[in-house]
Design a binder for these strands. Structure first.
Length: 576
RNA sequence: GUUCUUGUAGCUCAGUUGGAUAGAGCGUACGCCUCCGACGCGUAAGGCCAAGGGUUCGAUUCCCUUCAAGAACACCA
């Protein structure tokens, strides 16, 4: 059976045509007056304007036509021309017994850029949203039939690396990496992520206080960018260690990338791109620097030109960003690139995107999408800091949530407590992170997010596990649940109606590139199920067809729950 | 300073081309377990949608003004 809303709007479209009304799109929504109907169509009021007719009259014409279709149980016209629709049991049963949750494959390729980890620096809380939103969007795209590629786009080529290497040299001048006369393979020196984590903040601080040190660091950065043999080899060792470390943390968040490329990869394309840009004639000189002007006549705020080359000849963030696009178009040629990054970077990306289109690195038929997200702040609404004022590491955040989850975990669970607490912790963090609209800033509140009450990950998990264990028990008792034959009992109908909305929810999330519709829908499913569950005693129901119908319905709800949780990259433990 | 974003219940937030009586969660008050997971469910109180004006049958939504908060604004990433 096709998507329910599509079916309904097709029926209304037909009815409109039969009454000689032309309309491009029929939008039906859940009723906000459930006392009058289950769905509503408000189009009669718009048609009234277009056809200069009384909207109530139009609504009644449509009503009369629709009433011949046994699909509808009740149709009424209210107020200035609202059409309220209720569906017959037969139609709902037909839908629920043959629901279509799948989407056909298409060949569009969407490239998602999210994560943005920096090499030699541990991931911090600022990296959380990008990973959560990006991974969920990627899974959503896949579910809806799109091809995807994801890249974490590592920050692996700038001054931070120069600082780290310099400090390592100061401490270990005898390493072969630093011997300019050394030939042959360099022996590994056993860099660890713990070492890197300690070295970078130290060097970074020192560079701020010590001018001489900063100069040395700049020199070191230059050596790296020139790929001096020993320095480059050390960089490779650092990269390997750091990359594995980063992958480990992303793994905890169920986040995986197709590509772990970085600025160093894009940098290789810079010379080629510069030649190309020159040929395109888009580069201009300005105050000793080379820029691409990107302002447009109707800009209210003058968009400053994109800086391509500094007056000292060096390249910048925007240069590598543009080179990254150049590289991606050349290698992967995606139809769209989505950037899931902090919304404060909007202007920067606007410049780069404009430069990309202007120089025809990206053709007009392709989409560069900026999906900026709001900042996660501390409980007090101020930027999230540790007690000593530093930025909190992502691992520490996850550990604190895990510790809290473990503390709250039911005592009668004796096995796999650690693993279960981990699943709960990740669900907690992800659900809380995806609940607000993508662009909204939100405050991290440990107690609130870990609570079992309300719109929280644990509540969703609890409800899902409840469904699962109920179905398991039914199976153990050899209760069949292959179809639904009757709609009886409190909230049974509500659950079916809620399910019809799945397609809208997924499409809205795709269009808005925000997951809050999905998290909210999961919450609705869970509460509706819990209401249904408390008011109907399912396994002890004596009427066999009612029992089977209920169990079948639960199996569908459970399935949808799993589909959605999987899109959000949340694991469901067996027990909690 | 310029531009953009935001302002919705005590708190945290939804609200999709303008629609009927503005929705959730938390918190508060009061209820519901001899029964499938009470880590659950129910009921109630709580609002001048920042303020003022405009557009129209109709505005939290669109336009203008004011106030308040936040962000961005070329040689950092």
């Amino acid at each position: 059976m096709q998507k329910f809303y599509k079916l309904m709007s097709d029926k209304i479209k037909d009815a409109l045509l039969k009454n000689d009304y032309q309309v491009n799109e029929v939008i039906i929504s859940e009723s906000n007056r459930p006392d009058l109907g289950e769905f509503q169509y408000n189009g009669a009021m718009n048609l009234a304007k277009e056809y200069h007719k009384n909207p109530v009259l139009i609504a009644n014409e449509i009503k009369t036509t629709l009433e011949q279709d046994p699909f509808f149980k009740d149709i009424n016209v209210a107020g200035p021309g609202f059409i309220n629709l209720s569906i017959s049991d037969d139609a709902l049963l037909k839908y629920i017994n043959n629901p279509d949750f799948s989407y056909p494959k298409n060949d569009k390729l969407i490239f998602l850029d999210y994560g943005g980890a920096n090499v030699a620096k541990s991931l911090h809380v600022g990296h959380l949203r990008s990973a959560n939103i990006g991974e969920a969007l990627k899974r959503l795209c896949n579910y809806l039939g799109y091809n995807t590629l994801s890249d974490t786009h590592l920050g692996d080529w700038g001054r931070p690396l120069g600082l780290v290497i310099l400090e390592l040299k100061k401490r270990n001048p005898s390493w072969a990496y630093f011997d300019e006369n050394y030939k042959g393979e360099y022996p590994k020196v056993g860099i660890t992520s713990a070492l890197l984590e300690e070295v970078y903040p130290y060097a970074s601080l020192k560079a701020k206080e010590d001018e001489e040190y900063l100069k040395e660091a700049q020199k070191m950065t230059k050596s790296l960018q020139e790929r001096k043999r020993g320095i480059y080899a050390l960089w490779q060792e650092i990269m390997e260690v750091s990359k594995n470390d980063i992958k480990e943390i992303y793994k905890r968040l169920n986040t995986h990338y197709n590509l772990y490329k970085g600025e160093s990869d894009a940098e290789k394309y810079v010379p080629e791109m510069l030649l190309y840009l020159d040929k395109q004639g888009v580069v201009e000189e300005s105050e000793g620097a080379k820029v691409i002007p990107v302002s447009l006549p109707d800009d209210k705020l003058e968009v400053p030109p994109m800086l391509l080359i500094k007056s000292d000849g060096g390249i910048l963030y925007s240069t590598t960003e543009l080179a990254t696009i150049y590289e991606r178009m050349k290698i992967n040629n995606p139809d769209e690139i989505w950037y899931i990054v902090d919304k404060r970077q909007e202007l920067h990306f606007k410049q780069v995107f404009r430069a990309a289109y202007k120089s025809k690195i990206v053709s007009e038929d392709k989409k560069l999408v900026f999906a900026g997200f709001g900042t996660m702040n501390g409980k007090d609404g101020k930027p999230f800091k540790t007690r000593d004022g530093g930025v909190m590491r992502l691992t520490d955040l996850l550990e604190s949530v895990k510790a809290e989850s473990l503390k709250r975990l039911n005592d009668n669970i004796t096995e796999n407590r650690e693993e279960i607490a981990e699943d709960i912790a990740i669900s907690t963090v992800k659900y809380a992170d995806l609940l607000p609209n993508r662009e909204t800033d939100y405050n991290f509140d440990l107690d609130k997010f870990c609570s079992l009450d309300g719109k929280t990950g644990p509540y969703i998990l609890y409800s899902t596990i409840r469904m699962k264990s109920l179905l398991k028990k039914a199976k153990e008792n050899n209760f069949k649940y292959e179809k639904m034959t009757i709609i009886k009992g409190n909230h049974t109908r509500d659950l079916i109606l809620l399910l019809t909305n799945l397609d809208n929810v997924l499409n809205n999330a795709f269009n808005s590139k925000s997951l809050n519709d999905v998290t909210d829908y999961l919450y609705k499913l869970a509460t509706c199920f819990n209401r249904f569950y408390t008011e109907n005693i399912i396994l002890k129901e004596t009427n066999e067809s009612i029992k089977e119908s209920w169990l079948y319905l639960i199996s569908i709800i459970y399935k949808v729950n799993n589909i959605l949780l999987d899109i959000l990259a949340i694991n469901v433990p067996d027990k909690m």
